[in-house]
Design a protein around this nucleic acid. Structure first.
Lengths: 217, 217
DNA sequence: CCTACCGATCGGTAGG
DNA sequence: CCTACCGATCGGTAGG
């Protein structure tokens, strides 16, 4: 007599990560037990070890995949773009779109670095620094070429990186705009923060009337 | 034969909060045990219950005090200021200074809302919303009066609120600037984000050469 | 995939 | 302030 199971997917490695992602985002790594993850999949906790080596491996896999996906998206957004203002706009849009489309992964990446074992932490922090460094270099280049005006390019880079989290918090609560619209607004914000002296036709910095619609790649 | 204790303060209610703050910030609420807190104070875990009712009460007290302090600082920063640009600048400086001076409290407030019991969570979220609402109203007022230019005042408010976290992350790693200097830079960033059409002499928005030093109240 | 079970640790209480 | 101790829960293993 087989009971119908509420488990919605075949239990495999990817399904374990999917279940854990949401739980880790909502309750934290330490606030989530293997039993909690198993219950989502409709199995008992020991069965998870047929698919993953440890709880720690689940966390690392979630974060590693999320970082790789964000870095790849950034690469694609910047491919063939040489104008530094457009680079910053596209990088910011890519960042914000990633935040809005994968909020659970991003929440885990933001909050659970401290839950990683030392070896895993070094690897993830390296990828995070690689991502942040890309944005910082764009802003530094814009400052050197005189297109951007800010005394503290590194501070501006951190400000732009963090701004996206605001989009994520806000987007969850308000359904009025599409993710690409919000990303476009943040692209504007980023150019304003660095004091962009416009030259591409697409970025009217702070002054003057706003144009009708932000675009996204 | 009394051994010299490494405990640096008398164990009382405030000392328990002090010890817990850092541990909660570094390892999270669930990643910190009453035993961990007790060890910092040089006592055994059960002794803590002479000073606090529960672990949950410690968390709530830390967050409640932090929110009250931030709201009070915002009140004082805005007292008697009627110019909306100056309001936004001062509010942002107040926000960032609070982040830089009380990083452990702010980290706990950012990460551990989910660890609060339902009743405590409602109270803390109300204070957080009160704080965010103050900033949002300044930006909305600036938009209505035509001094600010942004299509999405609420998005801009979230962006400004979140930016400060970047300052906190960055400030820990780099000792090159004072907290008031960093706060001043973020005051500029905030005015740029909202597209401030300057009229007070103190805020050259995006365009033009930078002035030498940001000021702080 | 399961049941049964391991040692460790948790927040909190009893009692002094 | 302490020791002794409670029931509950944890990640993970044994064995099938």
């Amino acid at each position: 007599m087989l009971l119908p199971m509420e488990r919605s997917t075949a239990t495999n490695h990817a399904a374990v990560l999917d279940a854990a992602r949401t739980l880790f985002a909502d309750h934290g790594y330490r606030g989530t037990s293997m039993k909690d993850i198993a219950e989502v999949l409709g199995v008992r906790a020991p069965s998870l070890y047929n698919h993953v080596a440890s709880k720690q491996d689940i966390l690392h896999a979630i974060m590693d995949k999320a970082m790789d996906r964000a870095i790849t998206a950034l690469d694609e957004a910047l491919a063939g773009i040489s104008d530094v203002s457009e680079q910053l706009r596209r990088a910011t849009e890519s960042l914000v779109l990633d935040f809005l489309r994968y909020p659970a992964e991003v929440t885990v990446c933001n909050n659970e670095v401290r839950s990683l074992d030392p070896g895993n932490r070094i690897a993830i922090v390296a990828k995070r620094d690689q991502y942040a460094g890309r944005l910082r270099k764009i802003i530094e280049q814009g400052c050197r070429s005189g297109r951007f005006q800010t005394r503290t390019p590194q501070l501006a880079a951190f400000a732009v990186l963090e701004m996206g989290n605001g989009a994520k918090s806000w987007f969850k609560a308000s359904g009025r705009y599409t993710d690409t619209y919000v990303a476009g607004e943040y692209g504007e914000f980023a150019l304003r923060v660095v004091g962009c002296t416009d030259s591409s036709g697409r970025s009217p910095s702070a002054k003057g009337p706003q144009r009708s619609k932000p675009q996204v790649s």
